[in-house]
Design a protein around this nucleic acid. Structure first.
Lengths: 342, 342
DNA sequence: CTGTTAGCGCGTTCAC
DNA sequence: GTGAACGCGCTAACAG
């Protein structure tokens, strides 16, 4: 066995008494048949030496690496992880490996990430990033690799896009609350900045309220990390408005916000359901354990990740269709926090 | 600009009017100075063309890829993700990229993972895997790459190892409970199988109880996914024993178990603190929101990941010391579930 | 059908 | 100090 520990194509060629090219053909162009005699000899040698081609050398020569670059805005975010999980699985199943780059919320590093990954000749990108300062388009386009956007779209970037169907999910959510008798709604979101998903959900909330006017009134509150006083105040104001017999409910834009609202409720010593209705986007495992259970909108995170990877791999296999848009449905998980109180 | 979109070393050489070798030396052997004149010319060309060497070609030729393979038993586990996060950051800071492989709890795939990553010439491995069927040693040794184990040690594998100091953490936990007047203790863990961390914690629990005997009595219960009845029964039995004035408490082996126990408490309609004391390993964000707040042992997950990566990178830089063992201290987060009830 | 040759982009001898 | 030549492992273009 060679010092490197791995057999090379040359070793196989020698062992089989043929040339490297023949071995290469045996591997890549299975369809064009080579004389059965030689084929079996090669096959034997390749098995005997436990040979498997070096992806790096293949990448260098043939240009494709069977690597997929996954760039995540913030790996702290459970949503990102859930997507990561689905995507990683789909990639593995298709014979691709995932190279991971976490931006740690520093959106300026996006370019750096793309370049670093492109250096390794990744075949394509899965992007779950902020997408502000849309020079990203150029970067990706520059390297000529296909990309899929997850959850957050970049303005002006015509690539495939996979996400929760925010509009439908919000419609279901608000419908459920209105039907349950809630009349004063407050949508709590993280600061929108340029993040498309936050903007979409906020817009959808506005549309839903408008659709139910004048029976229903709605407001939006941007919750900033660390500024818990403001959130407490917003919740108090909401309950004030609810005083004249109109029941009030909060809709949380994601799991982070849900956590903040739950903490605020604990500070105020209010009970979900009894004092304030609630539905939150994302369905963390602990949702059923808080108070009477938190109603949520469960995202099909695994499917989203899988769909993103599948989309990308189809492109890698040559699909040349117009940019697609996959909006996957969420599932409303009704628990105690949005049940009518007897 | 070339069709590939990226400048090669040849382009730089031509632009600077020198040979490729000179450019290569400028990059790698900065110490040995080449005539200042040429140096500046090369530097200019390299900047003008925005040249950066191809890691793949480097890997192929020089043998090192600046890639680190990270194998995770189950990316669903928040602990794995937390480690992943710390490791990824440390790797990035040191100029390495992470290649991710998720076993999805199929421990047989460990070999496959190692081979796949080795194919890409990863410089080393970070392993957070089950480590059963310890043929892994061979596999890693075979490829001659250094590795560092996180959280779970593989029997007979002499590599660096990073983990929580399970023994100390358990000592603190039990000490806290005993001090708080709890006398009947139940340690709930996932089935131990071959997982070293679970065995260590269980053993440490036994040792702690022994140290406090005969004032304190302790039992161990293995909670299997889906078999919630058995868990409910174990908790009832615990409270039975506590009847004669001895207060009872549960210690949960990790966040998964904590979740199961919390669900059981909800089913039984018992309150943490009032009906049963509780401390759980791992400190999920929602711990403070359940009942009066769940006491926990917070693992320094970020440091663990960072330490693992740092260890490995030191090895890659040539450190040739005996296998090290880093046991990082946990932090006891005291909340309502283990407070003495008035 | 198969072997020979020429690169992919880079590091590293070896001469000059 | 610097350039030419070779090899890393593999694929693709030509021959035969």
């Amino acid at each position: 066995m060679k010092p490197t520990g791995r057999a090379t194509i040359a070793d196989v060629a020698e062992a089989a008494g043929v040339s490297k090219a023949t071995v290469s053909r045996f591997l890549n162009h299975r369809e064009r048949l080579l004389s059965p005699d030689i084929a079996t000899r090669v096959e034997a040698a390749i098995a005997k030496l436990a040979y498997s081609p070096s992806p790096m050398a293949q990448a260098l020569s043939h240009g494709r690496s069977r690597l997929i670059g996954l760039i995540v805005a913030d790996i702290t975010n459970p949503y990102s992880v859930a997507v990561l999980r689905g995507a990683e699985k789909a990639c593995q199943d298709a014979g691709y490996l995932v190279m991971l780059f976490n931006l740690g919320n520093e959106s300026e590093r996006e370019r750096e990430a793309i370049n670093a990954l492109a250096g390794y000749q990744v075949d394509g990108f899965i992007l779950n990033t902020l997408g502000r300062g849309s020079n990203v388009v150029d970067a990706v386009t520059l390297h000529g690799k296909p990309a899929v956007l997850v959850d957050r779209r970049h303005t002006g970037m015509h690539t495939d896009f996979v996400s929760l169907d925010n509009h439908a999910a919000m419609r279901d959510t608000c419908g459920h609350l209105v039907e349950g008798g809630y009349r004063e709604l407050l949508y709590v979101t993280e600061p929108q900045k340029g993040v498309s998903s936050r903007r979409e959900r906020t817009a959808a909330f506005g549309a839903c309220v408008a659709a139910h006017e004048p029976r229903v009134a709605g407001e939006v509150f941007e919750s900033v990390e660390g500024e818990s006083d403001a959130l407490d105040e917003a919740l108090r104001a909401l309950r004030q408005r609810a005083k004249r017999g109109r029941r009030a409910a909060v809709v949380a834009g994601n799991a982070v916000v849900t956590l903040r609202v739950a903490q605020a409720m604990a500070r105020l010593d209010w009970q979900f359901g009894a004092d304030l209705g609630f539905v939150g986007f994302d369905d963390p495992e602990w949702a059923s354990l808080i108070g009477p259970g938190l109603s949520t909108v469960a995202q099909p995170t695994d499917e989203i990740g899988r769909a993103a990877a599948t989309c990308l791999i189809e492109r890698l296999r040559g699909l040349d269709a117009a940019p697609r848009q996959l909006l996957l449905p969420g599932e409303l998980m009704v628990r105690g926090s949005s049940q009518a109180q007897p």
